[in-house]
Amino acid sequence: MQWLKISLITILLFGPQANSLERDMRVLTSSEFEGRPSGSEKPHRSAYYITRQFEKFDLEVHFQTFKFEYGFFDIAVGHNVVAIQPCNRTPCQLPIVITAHYDHLGKRGNRHYPGANDNASGVAVMIDIARRLQGMDIVRDIIYVATDAEEKGLHGAKAFVQKLGEQQVYMNINLDMLDLQKKNQLYALASRTLKPLEAQIEKTFMETPVKFKLFFSAKIMARRLAAPQVDWLRASDHYPFYRANIPFIYFGSGMDKNHHSVKDSLDKINFEKLTQVSSAITKFVLTLVSESDIAAKTN
């Protein structure tokens, strides 16, 4: 129960009044979590920690274990953490799935890769969204998925989408690298099928302190971010949803010079801005699960 010991130590260090988002980031990037490697037979201690946070909000939580090919001949095991906040209406609207990968690069020798922005930031915000929406009356299920093995080929998201089978999903919201960089701007890439929601999405973010730019083209997004080498459509866990014809919107902060280096550490995170990002995305999620907002869109 090493993961539980770490959780208790964290509470003692930062106290019950500590900002929960910052506390989660500190735990996920700690040396005890070893850079959150993927591919072990049992869930990594970071997966247990995420499970415990979701359980605090009375969500239905379980591991989704899967196998994936790694390298030329190896088969590895991954473990998604799936938490469900159920709709309490009859009938319910189609669910939304919020994803954020918790795995990172692990250790190289004696050094671990903290993966603060990539992607402890996305996981911490996802947990924070669940905290903010705890106990709310919602008209569709919210399925939170902390995916594993994203760094090795989006395998956790692929496994989750495959497991869906014929189950329909209204939208995937993917959170990956949310610490606002020097441009101080949150970017979003959405599937073209969400074009009718463009005005609603932009209005939601205009009413927040977060500078926001929405794209419906990965090529245009790459050009605007001066990153022609990045295929933003295939860059993260929203891609398997796209392949399954499930509408998606991916939120991120663009390029990070510390990406996949030991410098992607907690001291680089601006927690004031990350909290604003979490508030803004939560507000957007509310427009999807609130009865009043859905009624307004249909009138």
Rank of each mutant, 00 (worst) to 15 (best):
S38D: 04
D24Q: 06
I84Y: 03
A100K: 07
R131W: 08
Q85L: 12
F33R: 10
F73A: 13
A100P: 00
N88H: 09
G135Y: 08
Q64I: 03
D103I: 07
M136H: 10
N80Y: 12
F72P: 00
G115L: 07
N119F: 05
D103R: 07
P91V: 12
G109H: 03
F73T: 15
N117M: 06
R108T: 13
F63Q: 11
E32S: 10
F33P: 06
I96L: 15
M126S: 05
Y113V: 07
R23E: 09
Y48A: 08
A130V: 07
H62G: 07
Y102T: 02
Q53L: 02
R140A: 14
I138S: 05
H101M: 03
F14M: 12
H62Q: 15
S40A: 11
A76R: 15
I138C: 06
V97D: 03
L28Q: 11
K42I: 09
P37S: 08
E55I: 00
N88K: 15
G78W: 08
V27A: 08
V61D: 09
E60T: 14
P37C: 06
L94P: 00
S38V: 00
G135N: 02
P95Y: 08
Y70C: 00
M25V: 05
Y70I: 03
E32G: 04
R52V: 01
D128H: 13
I127H: 01
R26K: 13
H112K: 01
L133P: 01
P16G: 09
G106C: 03
I129T: 10
E34A: 13
E41Y: 06
G39T: 04
M136P: 00
Q134N: 14
Q64R: 09
F33L: 15
P86D: 12
S46K: 01
F33C: 07
A76S: 13
K107V: 14
P37W: 07
I96Y: 09
V82F: 05
T51L: 10
H104G: 07
E60H: 14
K42P: 02
V27C: 11
Q17N: 14
A47E: 03
R52Y: 04
Q53C: 12
V27S: 08
N80G: 11
E32W: 10
S31P: 00
G35T: 10
P16F: 06
C92M: 05
R131G: 01
N110Q: 12
I50L: 05
Y70D: 09
I50R: 01
P86S: 15
F73N: 11
